[in-house]
């Protein structure tokens, strides 16, 4: 299930947010969208999900235009973990995960034993089984982020759209979540589109990076080509040192500005 975006223009509240954005995520691949705050990463993801109406250009998920699909069909195609999810206080982790089954539950019906089993399995994969009965408002930041991911997994959609899935996680949980997404991609053949603001992390896991800046694609391609010290300097205003890691993927380190501090 490939994702294809061509010449996408999106306006929000009359202001241009995306201009001429194109990207291709082949079926079963992982593409990460990077870029400074406000570049339009989340908006791009929402356009792929059919949640915002493009002003121009085309979005195709598995060959279909998500905006014109019914919400149910769309939800069976793309699962979404938003950057700032609403976690209804009092709802349990299990019930929240079960929300991911909505596109399969008859409108006025109730969930089946299979829906419950899929939700339980999603929790299991994310090491959350022990928290299944815990209300959402009594979770740590990292646990919350994993619960949102569990809901997306329970959706069993061939395309995963994850908006900053690792922001609130410590380094161990970042690795755990990214490894898990990688395993899903490999084992279940999922197509993954994520935004990640940790550039090294993006470069370690994604097959391809798309650098958004000011609503336009500034660079795209394999991590080694996109993550250059010049590009990071130009678009993030940061001075970094880029060196290939053990597997050849780029590793970024910040350089302290000389003359600052001490």
């Amino acid at each position: 299930m490939s994702v294809s975006v061509r010449g996408l223009d999106v306006d929000l509240e009359g202001r241009p947010v995306l201009r001429g954005v194109s990207l291709e995520v082949p079926a079963g691949a992982w593409t990460a969208v990077i870029g400074p705050n406000g570049a339009g990463k989340s908006t791009l993801l929402r356009a792929v999900l059919g949640l915002v109406r493009p002003r121009g250009g085309a979005v195709r998920v598995a060959g279909e235009d998500p905006w014109s699909l019914t919400p149910r069909r769309r939800a069976r195609l793309v699962a979404y973990a938003p950057q700032n999810p609403n976690l209804p206080p009092g709802m349990t982790v299990f019930d929240y995960t079960l929300l991911g089954r909505s596109p399969y539950i008859p409108l006025l019906g109730r969930e089946s034993a299979r829906d419950r089993a899929v939700a339980a399995q999603a929790l299991d994969r994310l090491d959350l089984t022990g928290l299944a009965g815990r209300p959402l408002d009594r979770l740590s930041g990292g646990e919350r982020q994993r619960v949102v991911l569990a809901r997306a997994l329970a959706q069993q959609a061939p395309v995963l759209a994850l908006d900053e899935p690792t922001t609130a996680l410590d380094i161990g949980h970042q690795q755990q979540v990214m490894d898990l997404v990688e395993r899903l991609r490999r084992d279940d053949g999922l197509t993954v589109l994520t935004t990640i603001h940790d550039l090294t992390l993006a470069g370690q896991y994604a097959d391809a990076l798309v650098l958004l800046s000011g609503g336009r694609v500034a660079a795209s391609g394999p991590p080694g080509e996109v993550l250059t010290a010049e590009a990071v300097g130009a678009h993030f205003g940061a001075r970094v040192h880029v060196a290939p890691g053990p597997d050849g993927r780029p590793v970024l380190s910040l350089e302290r500005s000389r003359g600052e501090g001490r």
Binding site: R46, L49, L51, T70, P71, R72, R73, R74, A75, R76, V78, A79, Y80, P82, P85, N86, L87, P88, M91, D95, L99, G100, S102, P103, I105, L107, L108, R110, E111, Q155
Partner: peptide, 19 residues
């Protein structure tokens, strides 16, 4: 059940297949 889905907000509910 649908109101439970709606409790995550309109946009997320839409991404979960709800009108």
């Amino acid at each position: 059940r649908l109101l439970d889905v709606l409790s995550v907000g309109d946009e997320e509910a839409a991404s979960l297949g709800l009108s």
